[in-house]
Computed example of a mutant assay.
Amino acid sequence: MKILKFIVIVSIMMLGQAYGQNSKTKLNKKEKNMETSNNQDHYTFKLSDNVTRENVTFKNRYGITLAGDLYLPKNRGKETLSALVISGPFGAVKEQSSGLYAQIMAERGFATLAFDPSYTGESGGMPRNVASPDINTEDFGAAVDYLGLQKFVNRERIGIIGICGMAGMALNAVAVDKRVKAVATTSMYDMTRVMSKGYNDSMTLEQRTAGLEQMSEQRWKDAENGTPAAGPRVLPAKLVGGEPQFVVDYFNYYCTPRGFHPNSVNSNGSWLVTNPLSFMNMPLLSYIKEISPRPMLLIAGENAHSRYFSEDIYKMAAEPKELIIIPDAVHVDLYDKVDVIPFDKLEAFFKKNLI
């Protein structure tokens, strides 16, 4: 299908769809076992003895109910806490990387909220498995709303951590939401840039035009059918050899017991065919300089295929800003490898700047 070829061109972050199968592909025995296991356990990491975790819900400005996990340090005393909103990667859920970050930062004394973006995971919104640069930016603001209403949170000391594709939305949210005092990203992706221009800005005008024409035609089909069509499975059901290394890395996180979760689009789902439409014409980071004078910390792996996004944002942003390149790390290392993710730096950054 031409439309599927286009999605591969406009969004390398669709995680190698060209190597995938239709979203209706049946799970093999190993995948069914992983799904059963994670439905019982729910999380890809063990709950720390040093924190509490509570399922919470809150609404964004568009009336969509978001689902989150609130992590608090045990024995926190009576003083109000600095707080962090955390989400990502793009297509992941709070039981994966963002929840792990939230737990570890709660162990270090912060109130933290990891949430599922609109239309994914346990959050509301129909149809399912669609994203929006505007609505997903708003999701961060709604999480700030929620934290600022909690008596145990100092609403003057709220920061944001964005991971992977949700990091672009996190930066966009901080630019517009002056309540947020500091922001950090890891393995950042600018989803509007990669969908509208291709990986490393390699998309030609002819390719962009052809793709938009194909997706525009798809809208007629969706309208006629009364439901939007799902694209191919985000990641292949199994590796067959010859896949790009970034696909192998994503597979080894999302499709193995290391990071699999049944609610994650990236683990066993698919985005809608027309999902790139709003990302094609709405650049996220036009106002990146307006994050200043609030501090920004960008963290990327030395060998990450996404490294250039963080480096380019660093060049664009105003001071104060800092870019950290983690030696030998690839993109997904910053999802869950606690010996690679610089949590000491994140702790010091937010304790210094949430004042």
Score class of each variant (00 low, 15 high):
G242I: 07
K178G: 07
A300N: 06
P295K: 05
Y253P: 04
V176S: 12
L205Y: 12
D190E: 11
V183R: 09
I291A: 09
V234Q: 13
N200P: 02
G269M: 07
K238W: 03
K221A: 08
L298C: 01
T256M: 08
A237N: 07
S278K: 11
P293S: 08
F251T: 00
V248C: 02
E243M: 03
S216K: 14
R208I: 07
L284F: 13
N266K: 06
W220E: 13
V273N: 04
G198F: 05
Y287M: 13
Q207S: 13
R258D: 15
D177N: 15
G242K: 07
G241T: 08
I291D: 08
G231E: 08
N281T: 14
N266C: 12
F246E: 11
H305S: 00
M296Y: 02
L272Y: 02
D190N: 08
V194I: 15
D222C: 11
A210M: 13
E206F: 13
S264W: 03
T192M: 04
E224W: 12
N281G: 05
A210Q: 14
K289T: 14
E224Q: 09
T185R: 06
R219N: 11
R307M: 00
A300S: 09
F279M: 01
F246C: 01
R193A: 11
K197Y: 06
S216V: 10
A182F: 09
E213V: 14
A304D: 04
N200K: 13
A210D: 11
W271E: 09
A210T: 09
A210K: 12
T186C: 10
M195A: 13
A223V: 11
S286N: 09
E217V: 10
N303H: 07
R307D: 00
L212P: 04
K238A: 11
S292T: 10
K181L: 07
A173S: 15
A175S: 13
Y254C: 06
L297N: 01
V247E: 02
D249H: 10
V183C: 12
P283Y: 06
P293W: 04
R219A: 13
M203A: 14
V174Y: 03
L284K: 01
Y250L: 13
Q218G: 03
Y189H: 06
T185I: 01
M195Q: 12
T227Q: 09
P295E: 02
Y287C: 09
T186E: 06
G198K: 07
D190M: 00
V248G: 07
R208W: 14
T274A: 12
R307L: 10
R193C: 00
C255K: 15
A182Y: 01
P293M: 04
M188L: 15
R219I: 15
Y308A: 01
G231L: 06
P244K: 03
E206M: 14
V183Q: 12
A304S: 12
L285E: 01
D249A: 09
D222Y: 03
T209A: 11
K181Q: 15
A237Q: 03
L277N: 10
